[in-house]
């Protein structure tokens, strides 16, 4: 604030006092959220770290076991499988979901008739309950009478996959449903980003003779990178935590083909009485997400343009 340096000393003091008051006010406004964060996130997360170093089974007093749970994790073939499933899920859904969401956002950013209707329609899956959505999708994936296989039959596919009962197709099936479910959320963010692209840039480019394709690649895409970055970080974090789709669609089956890290954590904690082991898994998941997010932040300056 260069204006401040020219103001007389008395006013500066008053402003400083005000600033101090504002700081307290800011903390005051933050407090409710902060308390919630401390009690429901910060404390449990660190409690989980301690629990992960014990053999707590929920019911008996915990015994300290050091890093045994973490060593055991490295030898647990099922943990390897749920890691792999989750990684495939993240890598498979995030790019597809983001690309489709961007395309939908671009389409709905035009002055189409029924624009509002379509925006609502695409956002609907986000607010619909996963349980209800999964029930519908289970029917879509039904091997004999499902909509999807009927369509594949019509296209001449002789033996369409038995989606949810096949170890090869169950995970892709869940990924397809998740993409459909998540497009709306990313679409809304992209729409907001698109509307923040200044019209004068497009205008200037048009005057300079840039076509729509050039304008898209050299104006829209670069101006949208902060939004893209945000959508990517959020989508990756959410995808690593995939749980309810696996629980409701397939219960992790068949043969653990759709078992994910969080589903495995839930089962160990509440069904098999291995709270300590589950906490260790939760911390490994936290570590993975932390590193992946850190890498994304580290490399953002290479492609994200702010302003």
């Amino acid at each position: 604030m260069s204006a401040q340096t020219s103001s007389p000393p008395r006013r500066r003091r008053a402003q400083r006092r005000l600033a101090r008051g504002e700081v307290w006010a800011a903390y005051g406004f933050l407090l409710p959220n902060l308390i919630g964060f401390l009690i429901f996130t910060f404390v449990p997360v660190f409690a989980a770290l301690i629990i992960s170093l014990t053999n707590w089974d929920l019911l008996q007093p915990a015994k300290w076991v050091g890093i045994r749970n973490y060593l055991q994790l490295m030898q647990d073939p099922l943990f390897g499988q749920v890691l792999r499933n989750t990684a495939i899920y993240v890598v498979g859904t995030v790019p597809v979901q983001m690309t489709l969401a961007l395309l939908v956002a671009l389409a709905l950013n035009q002055n189409l008739p029924g624009k509002l209707f379509f925006r609502t329609a695409f956002f609907m899956p986000v607010v619909a309950s996963t349980v209800a959505v999964a029930l519908v999708w289970r029917w879509i994936f039904n091997a004999d009478f499902g909509l999807l296989n009927e369509a594949l039959y019509a296209l001449g596919v002789k033996q369409p996959p038995h989606w949810l009962s096949s170890t090869h197709w169950a995970l892709p099936a869940i990924m397809i449903m998740s993409v459909w479910q998540q497009i709306g959320y990313s679409m809304v963010l992209f729409l907001a980003g698109l509307q923040g692209v200044p019209a004068h840039l497009h205008e200037a480019a048009r005057i300079d003779g840039a076509g729509p394709v050039q304008r898209f690649f050299f104006i829209t895409i670069p101006m949208l990178t902060p939004t893209t970055f945000f959508v990517m970080v959020i989508s990756v974090i959410n995808s690593f935590q995939v749980f309810d789709q696996a629980l409701i669609m397939t219960e992790g089956g068949p043969a653990n083909a759709t078992n994910t890290i969080v589903f495995h954590i839930y089962r160990n904690a509440f069904q098999y009485f291995h709270m300590g082991y589950a906490a260790a898994m939760a911390w490994v998941l936290f570590g993975i997400i932390f590193v992946v997010t850190l890498v994304q932040f580290r490399y953002q300056q290479r492609w994200v343009h702010y302003g």
Binding site: L78, S165, S166, G252, G253, P254, A255, N256, R267, Y272
Partner: peptide
């Protein structure tokens, strides 16, 4: 049953 038997039998049932 939850981590070994049921998942294994899934492969026989399908």
């Amino acid at each position: 049953e939850g981590t070994i038997v049921s998942p294994g039998l899934d492969l026989v049932w399908n």
